[in-house]
Structure formats: structure tokens, C-alpha cells
């Protein structure tokens, strides 16, 4: 176990360095001088106006933008190792603070969305597989194809139109109470539940064809017990990967849905920082998203070895 964790940490450092370096150099190679874009935001607060050369020079001076790119990056890494992720160009507050403030919003949305998708996706997949080729199966399959095909932003707009605009049941945007959580969670949970349902169904059908299912029936077990005790655990092995990926994706902040619903999470922080070329914040978000993915992946792998005794846990 210790060896696995050390390996993970090593891999994690590599991935963080690679992803931040990539983002850093890409941001600097975008058209338009960074200092100019930043000056527009910081001094003028308006992107349409052109800042004076003086303003640009002040910015360059303050943020060390004169130095070569590579040394700028090294400085950033050095500071980050010491727990200093820099300060936001836009708000002048520390990047870690900017992220921590938005964390609760993103985590709440991610948890509720994944919970919703599991509550719908898993039973729907099981029922579709158990009643293969029945009306229920076709119904579940059709809905899940729709769920996968519909882009989440379109679903979000549709939901706003129906539930907020027409019926007036939910707020169109905002954050705070449970009501405002419903629409973003449904918009994110629907595609995820569709993916989970489809995979659950195909995995279940695959498992039900196995010899050990025939053995279980041959023992005299009822169909229900065969599913519950013999099929379900095997069915979850491939599904758990997708659940992990979906959850990692949600925890990393969902840019589009957070923007549509003005949800104050990581995704919206990232998008506003990108338009403002707020490089320290962008870097901070990238590090955060990378960590989240790696942690979720790690948890997925551990749950794997609990479901499937053939993997890991080298006791013998």
C-alpha cells in the first residue's frame, strides 16, 4: 500500500508540473501581449479601451513580465512549493483564498449531481438489463441515448425556460438555497446518469452471460439473489471507473453550467481568469483540478481492489 501511495505521489508531481507548464506557456503564446490585456483590466476595467504605454510598463515591472518565460515559470513553481500560489491580478487576494472561497459551491454541486446520477443511472441500468428487450428496456435505453446526446448547456437553457421562466418554480440563477441548486444539478446529473445507466446495462448483460451465473442458478438461488449476490459486484467493476471520471469532472468545476447559472464555483473562476489573463489564478485552478482528478482516480483504484479480489491487495 505504501509503495502504491509513493508511486501515486511521484506521478502526481509529474502531472502537475506538465499540466501547469503547458498552460503557462500556452497562455503566454496567445495573441496580444499579456501585460496589455492585464493593464486593460487593472487600470481601465474596460477591455475596449487601450491602455497607455506607461500603464503597461508598470504592469510589466510589478509582475516580472520582462523576465524570460522560463524563469517566470520557475519562480512560480518555487513559490508554489512554498505554499505561495501568487495573488490574483484582478482582486489582489491570494490565489489559494480565491479557490477556497469557491470550493463549497463546486463541491455541493458536484456531490448533488453525482448522487442524482447514481440514484437514476444505477437502477435504470439494472432494470434495463434484467428486463432486456422489454418495453422498460427500450424506454430506459431511449432516454439514456437522449441524455447522452443532449448537450448539457442546451438542457440547462431548456430547464430554465420551463421551470424558471414559464412555471416560475426555481430561480434562473444564483447560489445559496436548495431551490437554486436543483436546475444546475439536474443539468449536470442527467448526462452523467445516462452514461452510467448505459454502461450499467451492458456490463450487467455481459455478467449475466457468464458461467458462474449459470452455476448460481444451478444451485437453486432465486433470480433476485443471483442478481444481488452474484451479478451486481461484478457489474460494478467497469462502472466504477466511469463514476470516478464523471465525479472528477464535476469536482473540477463545470465551466459552462456554472456560467449559465452564475454558480460561484471553480469553473466560473477559471473562465473569468482566462478572459482577464489572470495567470496565477488560472495556474491555481489547473493545479486544483489536477489534484482532484488524481485523488478521485486513486479512490477509484482502491474501490476496484475491494470489488475485485483479483486486483491488487497482494496478501499472498
Amino acid at each position: 500500500m505504501l509503495e502504491i501511495i509513493l508511486k501515486r505521489i511521484g506521478m502526481f508531481i509529474l502531472v502537475v508540473i506538465a499540466s501547469t507548464a503547458l498552460v503557462f506557456f500556452m497562455l503566454h503564446s496567445l495573441p496580444g501581449e499579456s501585460a496589455e490585456v492585464m493593464a486593460k483590466y487593472i487600470f481601465l476595467g474596460n477591455v475596449e479601451l487601450t491602455p497607455s504605454n506607461e500603464a503597461i510598463d508598470i504592469i510589466k515591472e510589478k509582475y516580472d513580465l520582462e523576465k524570460p518565460l522560463f524563469s517566470q515559470y520557475v519562480t512560480w513553481v518555487w513559490n508554489a512549493i512554498h505554499g505561495n500560489m501568487g495573488t490574483s491580478y484582478q482582486t489582489n487576494s491570494p490565489v489559494t483564498e480565491e479557490i477556497l472561497i469557491r470550493l463549497p459551491a463546486t463541491i455541493t454541486l458536484a456531490f448533488v449531481s453525482i448522487l442524482l446520477s447514481l440514484l437514476i443511472g444505477i437502477p435504470a441500468g439494472i432494470i434495463a438489463a434484467v428486463k432486456q428487450n422489454s418495453f422498460t428496456d427500450y424506454f430506459c435505453s431511449t432516454i439514456s441515448v437522449l441524455g447522452i446526446s443532449i448537450p448539457s448547456f442546451w438542457l440547462a437553457i431548456l430547464l430554465i425556460y420551463v421551470f424558471s421562466y414559464t412555471l416560475g418554480l426555481t430561480p434562473t440563477m444564483g447560489y445559496g438555497d436548495f431551490k437554486s441548486l436543483i436546475l444546475p444539478a439536474v443539468s449536470l446529473g442527467t448526462p452523467a446518469s445516462a452514461v452510467i445507466a448505459r454502461l450499467m446495462r451492458s456490463s450487467m448483460l455481459e455478467v449475466m452471460r457468464q458461467d458462474y451465473i449459470r452455476t448460481a442458478i444451478g444451485k437453486g438461488l432465486s433470480y433476485r439473489m443471483v442478481i444481488l449476490r452474484h451479478a451486481l459486484k461484478n457489474t460494478f467493476i467497469p462502472v466504477i471507473t466511469i463514476i470516478g471520471l464523471e465525479f472528477g469532472h464535476l469536482l473540477g468545476g463545470t465551466v459552462i453550467i456554472e456560467t449559465i447559472f452564475a454558480w460561484p464555483g471553480i469553473g466560473r473562476l477559471l473562465i473569468t481568469s482566462i478572459t482577464a489573463r489572470d495567470i496565477p489564478v488560472i495556474q491555481g485552478c489547473i493545479v486544483f483540478i489536477t489534484i482532484t482528478y488524481l485523488v478521485i482516480n486513486f479512490i477509484t483504484d482502491i474501490s476496484y481492489s475491494y470489488l475485485d479480489p483479483r486486483i491488487g491487495r497482494s496478501k499472498h
Partner: peptide, 23 residues
């Protein structure tokens, strides 16, 4: 179900695939 495993039992070929890998 009362007959399977109680009155008549089957021993299958290929025990590796006929035993549940996760139990």
C-alpha cells in the same frame, strides 16, 4: 429452485469460469 442444488446438483466443466471470481 427446490430441485436445483438440493435434489439434483450440477458440477460444471471449467471451474475457473464457473466459480464467481469476486466471492
Amino acid at each position: 429452485r427446490d430441485i436445483r442444488g438440493k435434489e439434483i446438483a450440477q458440477i460444471f466443466q471449467n471451474p475457473l469460469s464457473s466459480l464467481n471470481p469476486v466471492l
